[in-house]
């Protein structure tokens, strides 16, 4: 494992937008993980609930689900409707800790508690809040590759 240096420059000269630059040779598993975490914190989606629009930090989202051409973001105990389509979210979140697990669902792998195989090459994923999602066979290779398998 290569050594890593962390420099933080804090000054009143900078405006409110923080800038992150990573200087490296080859990226390793640890660095990839850090980058994925940064991406997760950098992006956010807006969601609507009871007419109120809120910015949802990606780190709080358990999964996105598309129902009847509407997209919903599921948090620990809240559900928000998002304006973005599932395929748009998939493209945006490809490099973050999100992965498509079925035709209608994108899950945050950091919010997974465990997985177990089901007959027919499918998995059942249990989320931190105890909810269970099915990972379909056609999305299984992409899901496994998120874990380097």
């Amino acid at each position: 494992m290569k050594a890593m240096k962390l420099f933080i420059e804090q000054s009143d000269d900078y405006d409110n937008d923080a800038e992150i630059t990573i200087r490296c040779g080859m990226t390793d598993e640890r660095l990839e993980s850090i980058i994925a975490h940064i991406r997760l914190q950098m992006f956010s989606v807006s969601g609507t609930k009871d007419g109120e629009v809120r910015v949802l930090p990606l780190g709080d989202i358990l999964y996105f689900e598309s129902i009847d051409e509407r997209t919903f973001a599921y948090l620990q105990s809240d559900v928000y409707e998002c304006a973005m389509k599932l395929y748009e979210l998939e493209a945006q979140l490809e490099k973050a800790n999100f992965v498509r697990i079925s035709k209608s669902c994108i899950v945050n792998i950091l919010k997974l508690d465990s997985v177990r195989p089901l007959p027919g090459s499918r998995y059942e994923a249990t989320l931190e809040n105890g909810e269970k999602l099915i990972i379909n066979r056609h999305y299984l290779p992409a899901f496994k590759s998120k874990f380097g398998i």
Partner: peptide, 12 residues
């Protein structure tokens, strides 16, 4: 698949 799932759970 069970072996792969165990591996994923360990990584999680």
């Amino acid at each position: 698949e069970q072996i792969a799932a165990n591996d994923i759970n360990r990584k999680l």
